[in-house]
Amino acid sequence: MASYTNLNLARLANASLEAFVKTLAPLNSFSTSYSPEEMGRANGNIVLVPLVAALTGTTFGGTYAVCGGTKSVITVTINRHKVVHIGQQDLDARNNSDSALESFFYQQGAALAQTVFEDVLTLVTTANFASAGTTTSTFLDLTQLRAARLALNQANVPAIQRNALIDAVGMDALLGVTNFVQAQMFKDMGVLYNGAVTHALGFDFFELNSSFVAANSVNGFIAQASAIAVGMRYLAPQDGNTYLTAQAMSDDRTGATFGIRDFYDNATGTRYIALECNYGYSAGLTQAGRIIKRTD
């Protein structure tokens, strides 16, 4: 068997992981249970994702021996499986340096995350979350953002971990809003410099590009962490596999995990490396999210 000892898999996988985590960043603000633990017969395919539920407290009643404040969880079935296929024939392997492949794997990691992210965003429908405003994509303005904020506040949604996922067209419209452009009004100095509104009205902003399902006509999704629960686990190959490498790659901070399966096909002289993500998602507390619909 040919042996590609020139392929520094650790380096390439790390490049993929960096892009994977960066692209998945908007999801990190939701309720997540990411882990490199294996799914399987022993562990099942169900994970309980903790939610940031309503904050409760009470007057001291003379004893501390009181159980309260149950931790809310949402059950997520890990049944989604996305993969990015990578193949390299012998001739290409000899003509490409390891460093050239690093940028390639970075892109593949981003592609995997984008696929996962868009799949999760299929939850953003008016069937799951109420609408807080409607406008054409090019006229998104503070009016809709304030309406969404007010709706969340009235629903007693915690004021922490709030996010605004805005489509690129809507974000472009926001860059034309005087209040955002004049950064001194709310200390965001990078609106024109970076071309992005990063924080406003208590929301962390993330710009997406056609990531919402077109049929759902979404301008933006304004939500708190409890709105969506996402679970992610490692899908290990069965015993008896003959992969050159089969391992999980996991981010140390978020736990975001994907698997690598590396094998060689003698018949075609091709080395295959598959990046795969095993995950599941579910709508959490539907009151914790609001949709700004688009009419165009």
């Binding site: 020139n6 520094n8 650790a10 790390n14 390891d98 391992q247 790659m249 996991s250 981010d251």
Partner: peptide
Amino acid sequence: PREKTIWYRKNKVAYDAAFAASN
């Protein structure tokens, strides 16, 4: 896997150099 990531990032330069040298 998480410790693997931490270790690699901490020792990336040395590891990559060692890998290149071993090849």
